[in-house]
Amino acid sequence: MIPTGTTYRISPPRRLVFLFFLLIFTGLALRAQTVAVAANAQYLIPDLTDAFKRATGKTIRSVVGSSGALSSQIRNGAPFDVLLSADTAYPMGLWRDGIALDTPRVYAFGTLILWSKTGISVKGGLSALLDPAVKKIAVANPRNAPYGAAAIAALQAGGLYDAVSSKIVYGESVAQVNQYVDSRAAEIGFTSSSAVVSAAGGDAREWVRVDTSLYPPIPQAALVVRRGSPGDAARAREFFQFLFTPEARSIFLRYGYRLP
C-alpha cells in the first residue's frame, strides 16, 4: 500500500531543538554587519561606527587583527562583511581570488610615527634611534604589516638600518608595537599615527612623524566581502561607501591619516 500522504510531526524535544536552531539562524540573519579592521585603524573605528550610526541608525561591529590574519580568516569563511586593511596587497589578493564583491578602494594613507615613552627625545626624527638609551626598537613584522615594511624602508633610506638592526624586535602588528612601547618593554617603536593620536598615544612630546620622503606611501584599502544574501551585501556596501563621505574623511584626518 502506498501512503497517500505523510504528516511530519515534530516531537516536543525535537521542537525545542528546532526552536533553538531557528533562534540561532534568525539571530545570524538579523546580526549587525561586521567590519574587520587592521590594527592601525582600531583606534578610530569607534568614532567611525558612531558616525555611521548617527547617519544611518545602523550598528556596526568590529574585529581587530593584523591585515594578514584577517585576510586569511576571510579566505577561510570568517563572517566579516567589510575589511579595512592596512595595505592594498591583501585586499587585492582577495579581489583576485573572487572573494571581494567590488574592487578594493584606498580609503586613507597611513602615517608612520616614531614613538617613545621612556623620555628619549624623538623630535630629531630617526636619529633618536642612535641614543645609547635605546636598547630595543619595536617594529611591526615587515612581512605582513605595512607599517613594519615602511619602518624598515625608512631605516634603510635613512642609512640607519645596519646600525640598529640588532636592536629590532618584531611585533605581530602595530598593535603589539604599541603594547611594547606603552609598557616600556621597548624604548622606542614605529607605529601608526592613529595610535598616538588616540588615548593610547598620550603626550605629544613623545612622538614624531617620520619624514614621508623616507618611506613609500602606505595606501590602505577597504573592500566588501562576497558573502551572505543580496541584502547583506547592500548593507555592507552602505558602510563601505560611508568610508568615502566627508564625515568619515574628517575622522581619518583627525587620526593623522592622509587622504587619497
Binding site: 636598547k135 616600556r184 618593554a185
Partner: peptide
Amino acid sequence: LIAFNPAG
C-alpha cells in the same frame, strides 16, 4: 611583559 620590561 609588565614585570620584566626594563622600566619595571
